[in-house]
Every structure is written in C-alpha cells, then in structure tokens.
C-alpha cells in the first residue's frame, strides 16, 4: 500500500502547503539549520586558505568586500538569528511556557529577528 510514513518523505518537511503558523516555524527552522550547516562547511574551506599562505588568504578576504558576498554574510546572520530565536521559543514551549501562545511567541520573536537583521544590515552596508 502507499501513503505510509517513510524516511524518504523528508521533503514533506519543506512543503508549506496546508501548513499553519507552527508548521511555518518548523519549516523555517529546518531551512535555516541547513543553511547554517552549509555555511559551516564553507567556513572550514575558507579557513583552509590560511594553510596556503598569507597571499591566498588575503586575496579571499578582499573578496568579502564584494556586495554579493556581503549579502551572503547577511543571510548567514539572518539565519542564525531566526534559528536561535525560534529555538528559544521551542525551549520555552518544551518547558510548558507559552504553549497555548506559541503563535504569538513566534510572531514576537520574528519581529525581534527582523529588527536585529536590519541592525546588522545597516552595520554591514553603512557602517
């Protein structure tokens, strides 16, 4: 028979169709987690430039002034903030705090995330 649960259906985690606020938070946490994991590997590769000498590393650092690379850095900061605050919300609800207000908690934390992301964006592009 079909339609049974299966580990192969992990893609269903990312399907926003028919999901509600808690589901959106669940999806956001998975996307940001994957993004941060991808960044971690990228970071290790960049650090590896150090082993190839100061010139190679300095050349890469110069690349980080590129606006597109900066946008990538901002995405990393945004992912970290949203994932972290969403995680705090889950810690709260897991300890029975705000369980019946989880939607409001999510909205509240995402407003805080937006403010923080705008602050970092301003520092990165205008500071």
């Amino acid at each position: 028979m079909n339609n049974q649960p299966s580990a192969n259906k992990f893609w269903a985690w990312f399907n926003p169709m028919g999901r509600q606020v808690g589901g959106w938070a669940f999806i956001l946490n998975r996307i940001t987690a994957l993004g941060l994991t991808f960044y971690l590997f990228l970071h290790l590769i960049v650090l590896n430039q150090l082993a190839q000498g100061p010139a190679a590393y300095g050349g890469f650092i110069a690349l980080t002034e590129n606006p597109i690379v900066k946008l990538g850095e901002l995405l990393v900061v945004a992912a970290a903030i949203m994932h972290g605050l969403n995680g705090i919300r889950i810690i709260f609800t897991s300890f029975g705090i705000g369980v019946t207000r989880q939607k409001e908690l999510f909205y509240g934390f995402m407003v805080v995330a937006l403010v923080a992301i705008l602050f970092f964006a301003a520092r990165m592009y205008m500071g």
């Binding site: 999901r19 509600q20 606020v21 808690g22 938070a25």
Partner: peptide
C-alpha cells in the same frame, strides 16, 4: 519537533 500542526 514542536510544529504544533496537531493542535491546529
């Protein structure tokens, strides 16, 4: 994993 879809 706290998706809260069950309650919804």
């Amino acid at each position: 994993h706290s998706a809260f879809e069950c309650t919804a």
